[in-house]
Design a binder for these strands. Structure first.
Lengths: 188, 188
DNA sequence: TTATTGTATCAACATTTGTTGATGTAAATT
DNA sequence: AATTTACATCAACAAATGTTGATACAATAA
């Protein structure tokens, strides 16, 4: 692993642990056991570091999501697939998933607006699936916006449990449980 | 309203908007249209400001939750009541609810540990309700930990929609929809 | 061989930021 | 009347922080 990649990974760890704002260039230098100025061999600026982490994982996520959206799956199956993608990313790349949820607020304009727009666009797509499902009767009659947020928040919490912890998880089982929760709730 | 209360409210707004770390004493001064040093007539320190906001709303929340837990309601009804409390606090005090979700990370030791312990204790209590429900058959057979987090995240997202926005919401209707989602999911 | 690339060192900077001390004034409380 | 309380002003400091410039050395690519 090149030193640059090493730095990238280390920065992910540190930012996840301390939060982006609280992570200083000097912290990063110490973690790499190098001089402060040396950090700038790997990054252009502190902001740039956050941006690269964030937009990298974000674009991968959206690529996958868009493939699901434009597929011919039924609304319910699209939602299942969506949960699946979320779980996969959260479990295989927990630190970046955590960044995506926690640190986007630290972006500055114009990147901040760009990020928010992408997320809103994503939420609209999900809402559209929900509305389709309600219309064809496979989903309950409900407020689409509220359903959208409820579903998304249900999958977003995941990183809390798996980011930074050495828990060995059965991805398929986690997927199944979340899908059951979202689709059928908790009542027997 | 005394100037101290004015400041308290203004600081809530600003911290919600910019995040605690990004909110400077000078920002607070500007918002109050007063001198920088003057801010210290209202607070002991920046950290103290966060702590007071956080632990105030937190203790109120936990007080209400504990009353529910130790009541004689059935597990399902306890969960309904829990959602009810969450919705109430989120809608009546959205800014503080948002702090509770977003800014506790900025606490410093020993307050940080204190906060985390309180939250973990709360989550254990919820999990206990779930287990009771599973045991007496009113809840589906499921992973209690996962169910706990799914439920809690479903209610925590709320502030996203209502904090800072001037949306007039029907509290009862929101409650109903969330309870339906948590209990029955979205499938028809 | 020469040029480039990746990495390292040291010193220094301009800002930002939390905080304090000394002091003053007007209103409320005693 | 005397004293406490709430609020205001100004200047200043010490620490933290992002960033840069100049320089150097070794390995790799041309």
């Amino acid at each position: 692993m090149t030193k640059r990649e090493e730095f990238k990974q280390a920065s992910l760890n540190l930012i996840h642990k301390k939060g982006f704002k609280a992570t200083t260039i000097r912290d990063l230098a110490e973690m790499m056991d190098c001089d402060v100025a040396n950090v700038y061999n790997y990054i252009d600026s502190k902001q740039g570091l956050l941006e690269s982490h964030l937009f990298e994982i974000n674009s991968e996520f959206h690529t996958q999501v868009d493939q699901i959206i434009s597929s011919s799956y039924s609304p319910i199956d699209k939602i299942k697939k969506l949960v699946s993608v979320y779980v996969e990313i959260t479990i295989t790349r927990p630190l970046e998933a955590s960044l995506l949820v926690n640190e986007w607020r630290s972006l500055k304009e114009p990147k901040l607006t760009e990020f928010i727009k992408a997320r809103e666009s994503f939420e609209r797509k999900v809402k559209k699936i929900i509305i389709e499902g309600i219309n064809d009767g496979t989903l309950r009659q409900m407020d689409p916006a509220l359903a959208t947020y409820s579903i998304l928040s249900s999958v977003r919490w995941l990183f809390n449990k798996y980011a930074g912890k050495k828990v060995k998880v059965n991805r398929i089982e986690v997927e199944k449980q979340i899908i059951e929760f979202v689709l059928q709730g908790i009542e027997s």
